[in-house]
Design a protein around this nucleic acid. Structure first.
Length: 276
DNA sequence: AAAACCGCCTGTCGGC
DNA sequence: TGCCGACAGGCGGTTT
């Protein structure tokens, strides 16, 4: 569910409300959310500490703690991190973890499908968090240039859809923004990565940055579960061009939009604007 | 190298 | 109305 724009929105919304508040209690109703650590150890390590900073890498949220520790969260499909100013507010049915700040409210990890994860590690030690260790370039950073993309797709026989979903290449893209980016760049999802011409690579590079930037400005896309750190919906679902719009008309040319499985994921595209 | 599965979970939706 | 399968924004692991 949450892709880069959603995770970045959660980061920005939590930043003003969860830092520098001593953690007075840690509850873990769904113990499997905590990876590779016993719950009592997890609680002991966090108790009395404060979050000093909150950063993001791809779809991972990283809470910096004292003593050189970091709490790494991944929301997977339906995870939400929401700050409640009043701990007395009833908990959602699927609340996986709670970080209580006493009279200063609490941070809750809610997750219907329970795929979300929490890792407590020493600062920068990500080898045990497989996906984070091998994460590719940040698409909104200076490092992500069209030349970088041109180099990355070289000799890649994978379909461009699968290539863009692979977090080892570019960090943070998911099914929605890959489809939106390919539509904007007018590239068919089943083209092989290596078949893209320079002009297409430039368009794709530009499209990825534009789509992600606009989605962040819109506070992300709420189709169902996603919420900001304040529990509010995003607005970018109102500006999607093709995702979830099978059967509707292409906003560019008016042809009926189609969808099919590509690289194992439902993929939306315009058969006229995005030729194979 | 990459695709095709499966598993992890719960909820929703469409078809019958 | 009820049941049943398909499917969902992610990703790791195994097999092919």
């Amino acid at each position: 569910m949450p892709e880069l724009p959603e995770v970045e929105t959660v980061r920005r919304s939590l930043l003003p409300v969860v830092l520098n508040k001593p953690i007075e209690a840690v509850e873990v109703p769904y113990e499997r959310i905590v990876q590779q650590m016993e719950i009592p150890t997890f609680q002991e390590q966090l108790l009395g500490q404060s979050f000093l900073d909150l950063s993001r890498r791809g779809k991972y949220l990283i809470f910096s703690l004292e003593r050189g520790l970091e709490l790494v969260a991944h929301l997977r499909m339906t995870g939400k991190l929401i700050y409640y100013s009043d701990s007395a507010i009833p908990r959602a049915k699927h609340t996986s973890a709670i970080f209580n700040f006493g009279s200063q409210g609490e941070l809750r990890f809610e997750d219907v499908r329970k795929f979300g994860t929490l890792d407590l590690v020493r600062e920068g030690e990500y080898t045990q968090i497989k996906g984070l260790d091998t994460l590719g370039v940040e698409p909104l950073s200076q490092d992500f240039t069209w030349q970088f993309l041109e180099d990355a797709v070289k000799n890649r026989s994978a379909k461009i859809k699968g290539f863009l979903l692979d977090q080892r290449h570019i960090a943070g893209l998911g099914n929605i923004y890959v489809d939106e980016s390919l539509f904007m760049a007018q590239i068919h999802p089943e083209r092989t990565a290596q078949s893209l011409k320079r002009a297409e690579i430039k368009r794709l590079h530009q499209a990825i940055q534009e789509v992600l930037t606009e989605a962040i400005l819109g506070q992300g896309t709420t189709l169902r579960d996603y919420r900001t750190g304040y529990g509010r919906e995003g607005s970018f679902q109102n500006r999607l061009q093709i995702y979830g719009k099978k059967g509707e008309k292409c906003p560019r040319c008016g042809v009926d939009l189609e969808h099919k499985k590509v690289a194992g994921r439902t993929s939306h595209y315009c058969p006229a604007c995005q030729r194979e």
